[in-house]
Simulated scan of single mutants.
Amino acid sequence: MKKSLASLCIVSILFIFSACQSSDLDYYTGSVESDSYSVSTEVGGIIEEIYVKEGDTVKKGDKLARINVDSLRLELGRLQAQSGASKAALDKTFKGSRSEEIEKARIQVNQQETVVSSNQQDYNYRLENHNTIAQLYESDAASEQSLKDSKAVLDAASSKLESSRQQLAYLREQLQLVQNGSTKEDIDISKSNLDAAQWSIKSLEDNIAKEFVYANSDGVIESLNYLGGEYAPIFTRIANINNLSNLWVKIYVEEKNLGNVKLGKEVTMDAGLDGADSIKGKVVYIASEGEFTPKNIESKENKQEIVYEVKIKVLDHIDAVKPGVLVDVYLGDSK
């Protein structure tokens, strides 16, 4: 009788131990996480104002900060003036020269023709004089120095005449240009200058419109990385937003226990918080490839074990649990 009683006790103890061990394998601990969004500047400058503080709840599109863009506005004014000048130049190339400009060019040609005529007469006189002295020199009636002097005067008159002729040719070309109007190349250059100025204006206007930094998600301001008055470079992260409407718990399940986990399976979690001792969750992600136990959760016994990342979406008590809270997850059948 005593022997039978002892055997029964041993069997009972083994059963209880086995049940406890099996139950322990169904429990995992993970921390609550959420979608986190980085908010960055789209233009560099001094932060003039910050409209929120850490912990504030925001909606997507809310203003978070304002960047000083005064220097961009000054540059915009300069480019607008340049664009106006480019447009006036383009209009002029299309319309052609004014009658006053044509008349001015014609007068300059007439004046230069008079100069050329006078220089031609002076050259003719100097040539005739030089020829006379040359004949006298041949008959020993004039000195060699007189001949050289007349030749020097003739060369100067010739150079003066040629220079005036070249100036006349240039002025006639200018008159022809203003009479004919602008060439296709002139018009294309003017159009290109105007297009470049207008593109620069549009680019600056777009940057000026980015002076306000907006929330890119609903959520809570987790951190602010700059203070008012500090310089924030372009594309620098100035804030982080946690979207607390989408919370999940990440755990790592051993390969041998992966059969207990199915996508869509509802599980029970416990955060040890008042009013949130039983939290519903649903498995929404199971890694397709295993990995060694992450260092932040490994122990001496399991550091060489292959585990699979599992994410469990929090379905209720969202207001009670916060990112970073440790949660026990029960993967067994509903109790």
Rank of each mutant, 00 (worst) to 15 (best):
M1N: 11
S4H: 07
F17Q: 01
C20Y: 10
C20K: 10
L25T: 09
D26E: 09
Y28F: 08
V32G: 04
E33A: 10
D35R: 12
G45R: 05
I46A: 09
I47H: 08
E49A: 10
E54Q: 09
G55W: 04
T57C: 04
L64H: 02
L64E: 02
D70K: 06
D70F: 02
L79R: 06
L79W: 06
Q80R: 14
A81M: 13
A81E: 07
Q82N: 10
Q82A: 07
A88M: 02
A88H: 03
S97Q: 04
S99A: 15
E100M: 07
E101K: 05
R106P: 00
I107E: 11
I107F: 09
T114H: 00
S118H: 00
Q120Y: 03
D122E: 10
Y125K: 07
N129R: 14
T132S: 11
L136T: 12
E138D: 15
S139Y: 10
A141M: 13
S143I: 06
E144R: 15
E144M: 12
S146F: 10
S146A: 15
K148Y: 08
D149R: 12
D149P: 11
S150R: 05
V153M: 10
V153C: 02
D155S: 14
A156G: 07
A157S: 15
S158H: 08
S159N: 13
S163Q: 08
R165S: 12
L168E: 01
Y170F: 13
Y170G: 03
Y170I: 14
E173R: 11
Q174W: 03
Q176S: 15
L177N: 07
T183W: 08
K184G: 04
E185L: 09
I187Q: 12
D188R: 06
D188E: 10
S190Y: 02
S192H: 04
S192V: 03
Q198G: 04
S200L: 12
S200Q: 12
S203K: 08
A209Q: 10
E211S: 14
E211T: 02
V213W: 00
I221V: 11
Y226F: 15
L227I: 07
L227Y: 13
G228L: 05
G229D: 09
F235Y: 09
T236C: 01
A239N: 03
N240D: 15
N242C: 00
N242M: 01
N243E: 03
L244T: 14
S245L: 04
N246I: 08
K250I: 13
Y252S: 00
V253M: 03
V253F: 01
E255M: 06
V261L: 00
K262W: 03
D270T: 04
L273P: 04
D274A: 11
D274Y: 06
G275H: 07
A276V: 10
A276Q: 02
D277F: 10
I279C: 06
I279L: 02
I279M: 06
K280R: 13
K280C: 02
K282W: 01
S288T: 11
E289F: 04
G290F: 02
K295M: 10
K295R: 12
I297N: 04
E298V: 05
S299H: 06
S299V: 04
E301V: 13
N302F: 07
N302L: 07
K303G: 08
I306S: 09
E309V: 05
K313V: 05
K313P: 05
L315I: 10
I318R: 13
I318N: 12
I318P: 01
K322R: 13
G324V: 06
V325T: 13
L326G: 03
V327Q: 01
V327N: 01
D333W: 00
D333N: 11
S334E: 12
S334H: 08
